[in-house]
């Protein structure tokens, strides 16, 4: 199938004309660099190694505030990321409120990076933010193309994905 990498991983989540921008690790990093109050949301699909370590390195390199969803809290807390645990729908609900003051109470976030949430519920959450949170941008760095995000990695094979993540977590 043509352009398979940017057809949403589950193709039927296509919601309308607006599609996510395909990003490479470099562009993703630019987005994070530009953001003033980025938030990193980590889901249950990345709570084991090697993904646990990749995600941790990215959080550390960019000094990101971390939210975990479902039962992803413990492994990331053990890694020392000091995450805040929310249900994925709870955190999305807070993020769409322009008045919410963020996980640290110092103001709403302007970039939300998703990784490791279950694809279709993440897609619903991204849709919610796409519609009702014009104050922030969303970026997904899963191995799945998420058309409801503002920016997303394409569909990737594991090896490729790991390389992408390694790049984003490399210091120096």
């Amino acid at each position: 199938m043509a352009n398979e990498r940017v057809i949403p991983w589950q193709p039927t989540v296509i919601a309308g004309p607006k599609q996510a921008l395909l990003v490479t690790p470099e562009t993703a990093e630019l987005m994070i660099k530009k953001a003033k109050r980025p938030l990193f949301i980590l889901g249950p699909l990345v709570k084991e190694d090697p993904l646990l370590t990749y995600a941790t390195k990215i959080a550390e390199k960019w000094n990101l505030q971390v939210v975990t969803t479902a039962d992803a809290y413990k492994p990331f807390n053990d890694k020392g990321l000091n995450p805040t645990a929310y249900g994925v729908v709870e955190i999305v609900n807070l993020l769409k409120d322009p008045e919410w003051q963020g996980v640290d109470g110092e103001g709403q976030h302007d970039l939300v990076i998703f990784m490791g949430c279950i694809y279709y519920i993440a897609s619903q959450g991204l849709s919610s933010l796409k519609h009702y949170a014009p104050h922030l941008k969303t970026l997904t760095i899963c191995k799945f193309f998420h058309s409801n995000a503002d920016a997303s990695f394409p569909n990737l094979k594991d090896e490729e994905w790991f390389k992408y993540l390694e790049k984003m977590g490399e210091v120096g």
Binding site: A15, G16, K18, V92, N93, K96, G125, S128, K130
Partner: peptide
């Protein structure tokens, strides 16, 4: 209500 559109259209 927390809305998550399944479709934009």
């Amino acid at each position: 209500p927390f809305y998550a559109p399944f479709c934009d259209m």
